[in-house]
Design a protein around this nucleic acid. Structure first.
Lengths: 194, 194
DNA sequence: TGAGAAACTGAGCAATAGTTCACATTCTTG
DNA sequence: CAAGAATGTGAACTATTGCTCAGTTTCTCA
């Protein structure tokens, strides 16, 4: 029932990494341009400019590629968030930057973000992706509780969900004014927390 | 590319309606219990307790069933929202009730709501479902602008997105205290609008 | 340089997908 | 009740799916 998720082999040559990356990025583009339902391994390979055989040398099945993509996206976001958390900025400044990071990540590829949001809830993420998720939420919690120590225990999750939703709906509606979006998110977050 | 969405025939006998309903409800249950990706017409028919032939007498393809399900869910919500809008309640009371209606609808079947949220963005909704969507957003806008005439033009959409996200994340996290959820949503909405 | 390791290929398999259609059953109505 | 209309059935067709494997190409390094 629950398929294996682990990558099949870690490449030792540089083209191995390139192939793996091409496959993951092909899935990302397909989710953006077409959607989750028509996604097939053969189409992934075609888009990646790689044979179907190569695809199965790196991933045991389709699910594993989706998980790899989620890991990739989450790692990028976590890197930014961790940097913000470890910076010497004031709590308020950290929250501002957190919002900026969220916008940067999600607004860049909104349809991808939307698709992955659904996939994350559906798929067996595996240990590594779950760990990323946990570290992300801990980092956000840490920052929120610096500025609002008495906030509701659900506050960090709520704030993240709200910001995600605002970015998503704004991007899907075709907005382009990121500054306006940022100030609406700020208002929502401080309105909720304060 | 864009498949036909229109129902194939409107039944004249009562069992026709029952079959159609069973098919739509089978999709709802499947999305809740399994997910979008493994959804197939044969599985839908099986769950509905109906032959595959019957399914294709009522719907031209799988997409059409999903659209019918979206229409059903949206109609239910719109009925409640319209009743709130047309009631004699105060603007503030209307907003309260709107939040209650959102919780009632989305929290009842959270995994279904999550799946449909994604499907709605992916599928060709057709005129009727788009019309429902439009009327829903007009009704919400009307209520919001009663209480907050000077709000940002994006406010109604933002508020709906925020509330949806809070309900979703709360439900998926397994919360059961609806009263606590309601008060967090109220805080978020008034925090953003006020 | 050459030989073994690493990476890549794509035809093709079994399973499953969406869908049709010839026929059976049930309902309605005069 | 009869007979046509409405509804229901499921075997079976074609296309597509996830995936394998025998073989080829490219790389590495002694």
């Amino acid at each position: 029932m629950v398929g294996n998720i682990e990558p099949r082999k870690r490449g030792r040559q540089s083209r191995a990494k390139a192939t793996e990356d091409a496959i993951v990025e092909a899935v990302a583009r397909f989710l953006e341009e077409v959607g989750l339902e028509p996604l097939t391994t053969n189409k992934i390979a075609e888009r990646a400019g790689v044979s179907i055989g190569s695809l199965y040398q790196y991933f045991p099945n389709k699910e594993a590629i989706l998980v790899a993509l989620i890991r990739r996206e989450r790692s990028l976001l976590l890197a930014d968030v961790a940097m913000i958390a470890d910076s010497g900025a004031s709590p308020q400044e950290k929250i501002e930057r957190l919002i900026g990071a969220g916008i940067k990540h999600q607004f860049a590829r909104p349809r991808l973000a939307l698709a992955l949001e659904y996939v994350e809830q559906t798929v067996n993420l595996g240990e590594e992706a779950q760990d990323l998720e946990r570290r992300l939420s801990e980092a956000v919690s840490g920052i929120v509780s610096l500025q609002f120590p008495d906030a509701d225990s659900h506050a960090p999750r709520d704030v993240v969900a709200m910001a995600q939703a605002l970015i998503n709906s704004s991007a899907m509606a075709g907005e382009t004014d990121l500054q306006a979006l940022r100030s609406r998110i700020t208002k929502a977050v401080y309105g909720y927390l304060g």
